[in-house]
Computed example of a mutant assay.
Amino acid sequence: MAVQLDARPPVQPAHRVPRPSRGVRLSRFDTKYSPYLYVAPFFLLFGVFGIYPLVYTFWVSLHDWDLLGAEHPFVGLDNYSQLLGDPDFWHSVVNTLGIFVISTVPQLLLALWLANLLNRQLRARTTWRMAVLIPNVTSTAAVAIVFAVLFGREFGMINWLLDHVGVDAIDWKANRLASWVAISTMVDWRWTGYNALIFLAAMQAIPRDLYESASIDGASRSRQFWSITVPLLKPTIIFAVIISTIGGLQLFTEPRLFNSGTNAIRGGPLRESQTVTMYMFENAFAPHYNFGYGSAIAWLLFALIAVVAAINVLLLRRLGGGARKEDSR
């Protein structure tokens, strides 16, 4: 009689992994999902107050949307085609770009120079740094009233000073280029100090060892500024340019308050200083109440800001790359 033996090893009972406790599960959940919960309020608010109005504005721009009417028929891209052939719209675009260039370029250059001064060892540095922000916290209405008096044709101080050097009086509100200069001066006075503090904060993050090494090598203050400060401020300069582009192309309050009268939204009798936002307001609200056409203007303004901001960033990067190549030589 044959006996068959089973040579296989005995089966070990499976090791049972203990179930994680509730505290461990909560800790894992907190580590994995809590960052998303922390940032969710921002995206929720951005979606409600940013994305939704943008999409809704585009939807309205596809309709003949009279604010005083009950029906809003769909017209497709008719508002955009009409807008591209509107000479008043292109007139406002030229005004906006002109004021933007005259105000933004000197503003950022002056802010960079002012920040460099405030970054030095000065007496009462905190006082000076706080003082440059005073124009920004001043009421825009008060600033507009003061500058409207300064640039008055008959009794303005600017024309009084020009008269002392033999220059005839300038009608700052009726002359197109003169109105650009007057409004740009108002904008520069308000925002130069704000940008200077942004540049100053970035300058204080630059290691002092770089300046000490440059001084030992015999570099002057000017050479240190252009070879050390400006290249290391490139990200901050790009940020300031983008913010200034957005604000400069959306200019409304300063030119609106600079022009007085019953129809100041036109920016003068011949629209000398009417910006795109003023033209948008004129069409979307009183006196035309054409909300669809105004929404089309808003979307083209959005596209204009995106294009100009992209061009500015590309130019800054190209200039920065060229400067690095020259330094390497």
Rank of each mutant, 00 (worst) to 15 (best):
T104R: 04
F49R: 05
E326S: 12
D168V: 08
V137P: 05
A169V: 02
L83H: 05
L68V: 08
P20A: 09
K325C: 00
H164C: 03
M203K: 00
A142V: 14
T253H: 01
D327V: 15
A182G: 10
V187E: 10
Q4M: 06
A144E: 09
Q274I: 01
R271D: 13
A40N: 05
L97R: 01
D66W: 07
A14L: 13
D88T: 03
H91S: 13
R129I: 00
N259W: 07
Q82C: 01
N195D: 14
R329N: 05
G248N: 06
T236D: 09
L315K: 04
R329G: 09
N95Y: 03
Q12I: 12
Q82W: 11
R190M: 11
A303C: 12
A298V: 06
Y33F: 15
Y52C: 09
I206D: 14
E254K: 02
W172D: 12
W65Y: 15
A306H: 04
L177G: 00
Q224G: 14
A240D: 11
P255N: 10
I134F: 15
A111C: 12
T96W: 08
L108N: 04
Y80P: 13
V307A: 15
M186Y: 03
L251S: 02
A115G: 12
K32C: 00
F281K: 02
F100L: 09
L177C: 00
Y289A: 06
P207Q: 12
W226V: 10
G76H: 08
S215L: 13
D78K: 12
L233Q: 04
W59Q: 14
L54I: 09
V39N: 05
T275H: 07
Q250K: 14
R329F: 11
V3F: 10
H72F: 08
I170N: 07
L118R: 02
V307P: 07
R153S: 12
T31K: 13
R318Y: 12
R123E: 09
F155I: 00
L26F: 10
V143I: 15
S295I: 00
A111H: 05
I145H: 03
R318I: 07
S103E: 14
L108F: 12
I170D: 11
L68Q: 13
A70L: 14
A240N: 14
V93S: 10
P9E: 14
L62V: 02
A111E: 11
R317A: 04
D64P: 06
I311E: 14
Y293R: 06
Q82A: 15
T127N: 07
S103K: 04
A111T: 02
A144C: 13
G267H: 03
L26H: 02
L232I: 06
D168T: 09
Q4R: 05
W113G: 14
E272G: 05
R271C: 00
Q250R: 13
D217H: 09
S34W: 11
V230S: 03
L110M: 15
I242D: 06
L197D: 03
M278F: 08
A131R: 08
N95K: 02
H72N: 10
M157R: 05
A178Q: 08
